[in-house]
């Protein structure tokens, strides 16, 4: 079970959040075309390591959070608002 530090609510259990997918892909402009939207809808990296994710705090403040989580250790090194630039993940990720 993850514990996510919501910038608003503090550290909360995973059960309060809804995972909303990969936050490293951004929706293309409306006229970007079929290929761009196909990538946006379907193409994802599946990294063994740090991963940017959307988590919606539905059981709390209902804000959307951007979370940097390690897919092996589940370590979370940064959480922010959708437009925040999260600090780069630490080198030598713990596994």
């Amino acid at each position: 079970m993850l514990r996510i530090r919501c910038p608003w609510c503090g550290v909360r259990d995973e059960a309060e959040f809804r995972y909303r997918g990969d936050a490293s892909v951004r929706r293309p402009r409306g006229d970007a075309g079929l290929a761009a939207f196909t990538d946006y809808a379907y193409v994802r990296d599946n990294p063994r390591g740090w991963h940017l994710e959307w988590w919606l705090h539905v059981g709390g403040c209902r804000r959307l959070l951007k979370v940097s989580r390690h897919t092996v250790s589940h370590a979370i090194h940064a959480v922010g608002a959708p437009d925040d630039h999260l600090p780069p993940p630490p080198d030598g990720a713990r596994e």
């Binding site: 809804r18 909303r20 936050a23 929706r27 959307w54 919606l56 539905v58 209902r62 804000r63 959307l64 959708p82 437009d83």
Partner: peptide, 13 residues
């Protein structure tokens, strides 16, 4: 509701 909240915050801030 989640669909709307997500898109409002992620795509139309």
């Amino acid at each position: 509701l989640e669909h709307l909240e997500f898109h409002l915050q992620a795509c139309c801030p």
